[in-house]
């Protein structure tokens, strides 16, 4: 591991001062440290943000919106009565990170900013894993790779389990940098890189993700459904999060977001549209699942994930409506 400087500022302003092009932000460190040990990230300076109180805490605003500080741990998400009541789908997603140790130190912002688990990336072949002009993942073993948004060079899947649940609830994130602060929809934060020169989310060097805000989720029916290969610590194979607004017994609007299926958390407008104006039934839920994978394309070894995505959406919809999956 390269030698590096370590800074531990106590304020956001202090952090902005020490963050530069060659620095990285350290939160719980559950992903960053393994990236550094593998030599995938080699910063000159590590800026610990855990001492910054401004980044902590879960707050419910007068308008019913929920703000989750960047440093809120997954465990705090799991133990928050507010989140359990207002957005249980986020709590369900956090529960899917099935390691008490990771839950106790891993943070919400860290979960959103964790790097892909793609085995080509983690083995040092680069984010898009191109070798001699060819995609290793496309020609090689892609059983865990993308089935949606996979036309380009990037075939990894976004690893965040929280992102789909948050995006389904139209969450925004606050970002501060030297040149000021901005708020962006979490859905727009993620991007599909076209080469290793780009990253899978839009954060400029020196910027800090400070908080996640969920507009009042009141009245929305929400759920997250994960399909896992095993119960022990492991990322899901595929997951779906939904937020459904009802008008009487009909769906007035539905937002369906899939996780672990594309280089970004995948908002399925088709699945949402399939539900709009319908009652939630086994049939309409299944139709939403079918709609979600309409544009899916299997790589050589991941055709099964299309089926998983279909089922995850169906079951998330049913769960949101309080029906048996």
């Amino acid at each position: 591991m390269n030698s590096f400087e370590y800074a531990s500022p106590r304020t956001i302003a202090g952090a902005l001062e020490v963050l530069d092009n060659d620095s990285v932000i350290l939160a719980g460190g559950t992903d960053l440290l393994s990236l550094m040990k593998e030599g995938l990230v080699a910063p000159k300076r590590v800026v610990n943000i855990k001492e910054i109180d401004e980044l902590k805490g879960i707050n419910v605003g007068e308008d019913g919106s929920v703000t989750i500080g960047a440093l809120v741990t997954l465990e705090e998400v799991l133990e928050s009565p507010d989140l359990a009541e207002l957005c249980p789908s986020v709590v369900e997603a956090a529960a899917g990170v099935r390691s008490p140790q990771i839950q106790s130190v891993g943070t919400v912002a860290g979960d959103l900013c964790q790097r892909p688990r793609c085995w080509y990336y983690r083995n040092g072949f680069g984010l898009t894993a191109m070798k001699d002009g060819k995609s290793l993942a496309r020609d090689g073993d892609n059983r865990y790779h993308a089935i949606l948004g996979n036309d380009g060079a990037a075939l990894f899947v976004n690893p965040s389990s929280l992102a789909p649940a948050l995006i389904a609830l139209d969450a925004k994130i606050s970002i501060v940098g030297k040149s000021g602060s901005r708020e962006v929809a979490l859905a727009d934060f993620f991007q599909t890189p076209s080469s290793d020169q780009e990253k899978e989310y839009k954060l400029e060097a020196g910027e800090i993700l400070t908080a996640i805000t969920i507009p009042s989720p009141a009245g929305k029916k929400v759920a997250t459904y994960e399909i896992r290969e095993k119960q022990a610590l492991d990322w899901p194979l595929t997951a779906a999060a939904v937020a459904i607004e009802m008008n009487g017994d009909q769906v007035s609007a539905a937002k369906v977001v899939l996780g672990h299926v594309a280089p970004v958390p995948w908002v399925s407008a088709e699945a949402g549209a399939a539900l709009a104006g319908k009652q939630v039934t086994a049939e309409s839920a299944a139709a939403a699942g079918d709609a979600a994978v309409k544009s899916a394309k299997a790589l050589s070894k991941n055709g099964f994930k299309i089926q998983l995505a279909r089922v995850a959406v169906k079951r998330a919809v049913l769960r949101a409506a309080g029906m048996e999956v």
């Binding site: 059983r143 399909i227 290969e229 194979l237 299997a298 790589l299 050589s300 070894k301 991941n302 055709g303 099964f304 994930k305 299309i306 089926q307 998983l308």
Partner: peptide, 16 residues
């Protein structure tokens, strides 16, 4: 007996 292989045996995907 991973999910991909089970689904493939069931004719529901698997290795495409």
């Amino acid at each position: 007996l991973t999910p991909d292989r089970v689904l493939e045996a069931l004719g529901k995907g698997g290795a495409a």
